[in-house]
């Protein structure tokens, strides 16, 4: 995935079944953000793989004061990339055929 300066990692073991999964997000490179970033640490949250939109979560982070509005896209993209990877891994681990 593209280096957005924002890192998103799994915050729990993925059993491949749960639709809600714990993620952890933190800023690795504040220079890649457009707005001034206040170093608050890592943000832990749960994300529903089945029906949630990464951009909506990013918007909630902005509204909660973690990021400025100008960075909502980069935060959303970082979450989206990680979610795509988790889904891709899940698809790969499904046993082929019956």
């Amino acid at each position: 995935a593209e280096d957005t300066g924002v890192r998103v990692e799994l915050n729990e073991e993925d059993d491949g079944k749960k639709s809600s999964i714990a993620l952890k997000l933190w800023v690795e490179d504040p220079k890649k953000l457009k707005g001034k970033y206040k170093d608050t640490g890592a943000i832990e949250f749960t994300f529903n793989l089945a029906n949630e939109d990464p951009e909506v979560v990013a918007q909630e982070m902005v509204e909660s004061g973690f990021f400025l509005d100008c960075d909502v896209k980069v935060v959303g993209k970082s979450i989206r990339d990680r979610v795509a990877l988790i889904k891709w891994r899940r698809e790969r681990t499904v046993s082929p055929g019956n």
Partner: peptide, 27 residues
């Protein structure tokens, strides 16, 4: 060294914690 909890109006919980050690190694 402490964790803080922020609850968004939509009901989502954000928990602020120290940045993982792995991040420090990469810099």
């Amino acid at each position: 060294s402490t964790t803080a909890q922020v609850v968004h109006s939509a009901g989502r919980r954000f928990i602020v914690s120290p940045v993982p050690e792995s991040r420090l190694r990469e810099q």
